[in-house]
Computed example of a mutant assay.
Amino acid sequence: MPNYVDWTFAKTTGARLVPPGPDVGHDEAAEIVGEIRRLSRMAVDPVAATSHLTAPGDAPAALVVDRPTWIGVNADSMAALLDPALEAAAQRREKPPWGPAQAVGNKLTGAEAGGMLAFLSAKVLGQYDIAPQGTPALLLVAPNMVHTERELKVVPRDFRYWVCLHEETHRVQFTAVPWLREHVIASARGLATDLMPDQETVRERFEQMATNLPKVIGGEGQGLAELVITPEQREQMAKVTAVMSLLEGHADVVMDDVGPQHVPTVETIRSRFTQRRKGAGAVDRLLRRLLGLEAKMRQYRDGATFVRTVQHSVGVEGFNAVWTSPQTLPTPLEITDPSAWVRRVHG
């Protein structure tokens, strides 16, 4: 298959552009990595007890990584998700692009992907990488934890454990619910394929970009995707967003429910971290809007409200009916109307 995005160049570009991490000596870095690994193991039992979900014994342990490693892993996952969509779009063309032009284009798109990954690599504290064509893994980004705990002026051990609780919940979601990973991969690939414009709609999409750009800069919608999305695609994206809201909100609820017993300063951490999620300077806020990170913040809020409301109504076991099948996941309307989900699933 032709290489429509030079993912190797994306990794190289990302590694060159990645911001330097916090100033940490070699011995201190080794100590930090060891503590994060230990805290990630400690998070397993409290998360299982609180969520009533248990990861299988063969589920891989967390990996503590630096920013360039995170970029490399995510470039591979993006390639596995997007390359099939790019191939499908190419097959709809009347004729293939001129060879030299395609080579230059591949480098340009690779550079753009690398720049985006470099920016995000300094923001992400942890992530469960679903690895569409590889081995899933829980990633904990050590320099970002250190940078954030210093920025927030919170107790390092408490903050690191708090983050581990959130990310362990994601590991449990994707390993204790066998069908979830393939469902998310299929949904993301389907959406990516639908978002690829063909030759007949390119002009229409450019006109749409001019109309929607003020909305994106204003923080509405799903970031850059909002520039070219159709009403039908918006509906499909809403379904994917509802699932992501569920996953992120559930992880936030579990981490905060476990927190009071295991993280003495959890209230201070939550208060300061919530404020941090709003973004720092004007440039940072603009980039967050363009990349859809503002929409992700709404996912945390909507998802957490959904989880708490449902659990208050039908308990944790009643809420866990959400993991029964793709049909029991909340719809876009239900994620903001939890009682509608309870009526549909529990009668």
Rank of each mutant, 00 (worst) to 15 (best):
I229N: 00
R171I: 01
R234H: 09
W341S: 12
D252I: 07
S51A: 12
P97I: 09
T268Y: 10
T201P: 03
E167A: 03
A280I: 13
V322S: 01
G126T: 01
R270V: 15
A80P: 04
F206D: 02
V33T: 14
T169W: 05
V47G: 06
P19N: 09
R160E: 14
V18F: 11
V310A: 00
K95M: 14
K215F: 12
A30R: 14
L17Y: 12
D58E: 12
L195E: 03
M237I: 13
R289T: 13
V18G: 07
L63K: 15
P56Q: 04
A103V: 03
P68A: 06
T69G: 02
H346A: 10
L329V: 00
P332R: 00
W98M: 12
L86P: 05
F206Y: 07
L108C: 08
A48L: 07
G72V: 00
M255F: 04
L117K: 10
P56A: 04
D66G: 03
N3Y: 03
R160Q: 13
T169N: 08
V104G: 10
P326N: 09
T109W: 14
V65S: 10
H346W: 14
P197V: 00
N320A: 01
A29H: 11
P156E: 08
A238V: 01
A55C: 04
R38N: 11
D27Y: 13
L120Q: 11
A282I: 13
V64A: 04
G21C: 09
R288L: 05
V345L: 05
A137M: 07
P96I: 06
E28M: 10
M244P: 05
A280P: 07
V5T: 09
G72C: 01
R93P: 05
M244Q: 11
T274D: 15
H346K: 03
T50R: 13
L140T: 01
V243E: 10
K296V: 15
I229D: 01
D45R: 15
T230I: 05
A321S: 07
A142Y: 12
D6F: 00
I36D: 08
A79C: 12
F9V: 12
A304W: 05
D23F: 02
D252R: 12
K11A: 15
P326F: 00
T54I: 09
